[in-house]
Design a protein around this nucleic acid. Structure first.
Length: 285
DNA sequence: ATCCAGGATAGCG
DNA sequence: CGCTATCATGGA
């Protein structure tokens, strides 16, 4: 009884920066409303609201929302494991309430397959088109929201239907993955029991999945917090700051450095660095 | 107009 | 192994 009161108390007090969490390139479907964000957690429509960096939500879906938003993660302890160099500290100070989301696996995999060499605003467009055309419409309060299409749905489509969603050269990869998962040839659930290295190797067997996308899925869906995705922005931070002056920093060297230097929650640190660097170094804002 | 984007991969040397 | 061209599309 004591214990449940203690955890209830923590529920109320856990800080979260909703905007940073939902708009830092982890998920791409939450639409801003006058008072919060509307979207789906799996097939559950939700209107997320926060006041003063504290989640405000009804009892009904509290457990679901808390899990999705990473409110179960011991953020203080996680931040304490980060290295204390100036850039890492600046990144944490930039958005102290940023959390890693726990996404549905298929949705995460398919979304990052469609993210290759795209800007975040374009990934949002692709996600929106896929959801509105091939997902189910639900209502979060008065806001229409859409589920992510099932593997079976995307597997049955003509490639032309996916091309209408602006997927470009990624369309074939998304459909191939949908067929692998729908047919049972690839068991996404089974990877939960694999080591991170083993799961990464298996994910990379899916066409269009390489190291970066595999690490995104490991981090954002399987909650492997040591997984460290290196995209163009994170590579920039590594080259500019942590490999300054080293002209022969290869991808493999940077990957190895990162997992060691940033520690057991390297992926969490990566998300802070990504969000900080992207918002402070991009042109035009 | 030109460059770039939360990349992966086949085809080179 | 490392390097390069290429894939489709729209934002900046």
């Amino acid at each position: 009884l004591d214990r449940s009161f203690a955890s209830l108390d923590r529920q109320v007090n856990d800080p979260i920066d909703l905007a940073a969490t939902l708009n830092s390139g982890q998920v791409f479907h939450w639409l801003e409303t006058p008072t919060g964000f509307a979207g789906c957690i799996g097939d559950v429509p939700i209107h997320l609201k926060a006041r003063d960096r504290r989640l405000v939500t009804g009892e009904a879906n509290l457990a679901l929302v808390r899990r999705y938003l990473g409110l179960e993660h011991p953020l203080e302890q996680i931040l304490a494991t980060f290295p204390t160099d100036p850039v890492m500290q600046a990144a944490v100070n930039f958005s102290p309430g940023l959390r890693i989301i726990e996404q549905p696996i298929w949705e995460c995999l398919a979304t990052f397959l469609s993210s290759a060499l795209k800007q975040i605003s374009q990934i949002r467009t692709i996600s929106y088109l896929l959801r509105t055309r091939f997902g189910r419409q639900l209502y979060a309060g008065r806001f229409p929201v859409f589920t992510y299409p099932e593997p079976a749905t995307l597997a049955r489509l003509e490639l032309a239907d996916l091309l209408l969603c602006k997927l470009g050269f990624r369309a074939g990869n998304v459909q191939a993955a949908a067929k692998l998962v729908d047919s049972g040839a690839f068991d996404l659930e089974a990877l939960r029991h694999c080591s991170t290295d083993e799961a990464r190797a298996k994910l990379c067997l899916i066409p269009g999945v390489g190291a970066k996308i595999a690490n995104c899925v490991l981090l954002f869906a399987y909650q492997r917090f040591e997984a460290f995705p290196i995209d163009v922005w994170v590579e920039r931070v590594l080259r500019d700051i942590y490999f300054a002056g080293d002209t022969q920093a290869t991808a493999k060297k940077m990957q190895m450095f990162a997992t060691e230097y940033f520690g057991p929650f390297a992926g969490y640190a990566q998300q802070y660095l990504f969000h900080f660097w992207r918002l402070t170094h991009r042109k035009g804002a």
